[in-house]
Write a protein that binds this DNA or RNA. Sequence first.
DNA 1: CACAAGTAGTTCACAAGTAAATTATTGTAG
DNA 2: CTACAATAATTTACTTGTGAACTACTTGTG
Lengths: 161, 161
Amino acid sequence: MSDALSRFRDSWAHLRPDLDLSSMEAIGRVLRLAALMHHITDTALTDAEVTRPEFEVLAALRRSPHGLRPRQLTRETVSSSAATTKRLTRLEQAGLITRTPHHRDRREVQVTLTDRGAQLAEELFTGQLQRESELLAPLNPDERAQLAHLLQRVLAPIDRA
Amino acid sequence: MSDALSRFRDSWAHLRPDLDLSSMEAIGRVLRLAALMHHITDTALTDAEVTRPEFEVLAALRRSPHGLRPRQLTRETVSSSAATTKRLTRLEQAGLITRTPHHRDRREVQVTLTDRGAQLAEELFTGQLQRESELLAPLNPDERAQLAHLLQRVLAPIDRA
DNA sequence: CACAAGTAGTTCACAAGTAAATTATTGTAG
DNA sequence: CTACAATAATTTACTTGTGAACTACTTGTG
C-alpha cells in the first residue's frame, strides 16, 4: 500500500540520484497529512459558528485557566499577530471571548472565554478528537504512542524557538 | 524534554478527565510541526523568485516527466482549483511554466516547466531537503525510517480519497 | 526627571485563498 | 442530429492572512 510520498521519492530518485532523499519521506508526509487534516476539519466546521483558525484560538484559551494575552495566542496558534487581532475582533463580536485591559501594564490585554465560548470550545474539541482518532485508525495503540514519541523528539527542540 | 503538545494534553486531561486524548498527541504534533515547517520555508523563500505554494507547483511539475493538467496539480498540492489557476497565471508570467491546450480534448490544458522553471524547481528542492534534514536532526536514520513508515500507514488510506 | 529604546496590540494596504458562477468543450441518450 | 448532463479551467466577488507602519504605554539610562 503506497502513498503520494512514495511516488514523489521515486520520481526524485530517478531524476536526481545524487541527492539524499532520506528526510523527505517523513517531513513530506507530515506536511501532506496536515494539509489533508485541515481539509477534513474545515469541511466538518462549515456549519459551525466559528472557522478552524478561530476554533484554535478558542481551544488555546480553554486550556489556559486564566486566559491568555494576544501575543501568547499568536505563539500558541503559530500565526501572525495581525491574524490574531482579526480573529479576536470577530470572536468578541460573536460573544465568545472578552478582551480586558491589564491594570498594571495598560499595553497588555487579557483575553478570556465567555461561558458560551468555553462551552463551544469543548464541544468542537470533542469533535476534533473524534476526527483525529479516525485518522489514526490504521495504527494500534502502541504504534500511536511510538509515533507521538518520535514526533515529540522532533518538535521539542524547535518549539521553544 | 517536553513540547507544546505535552502541555496541551495535560491541560485537557485536567479539564476533561472523561475524554480519550490518546490521538491528540500524534496528530496535534503533525499539525504543529507542519505549521512550524511552513514558517521556516516561508522565511527561507522570502527573497526567492516564487512563494512556497508556487514552489510546490514547480516541484510537482518537475517530478512529472510529461507535465500535469491543472486538475492534477490541485490534487498534488492539496488546494483549490482557483488557487491553482492563480498560481499558474503568476508562474506563466514569470516565464517558469507554459500552458498548452490539449488537441484531443480542448477543455484540458497541459502545464509544463520551462528550462528556467525546471532549474529553479531543482535549486529550491535541494534547499528544502536541507531544511527537512535539519528538522530531523534529533532522530537517527533508523528512527527516521520508522517515523516515515508509521506516517505512510496513516496517510495511504486517506490519500486516495 | 526626561527621553530614547523597547514592547503590546492594532490598523492599513495589499496579497492570496476560497466557493460559487461562468465559459467552453465533450460525451451520451433519445 | 439535438439536447442535456458531465467535465475542465477560469472568472468573480468576497474573505482571510500578512508585513510594515502606527499608537499607546512602560522601562532603563544618564
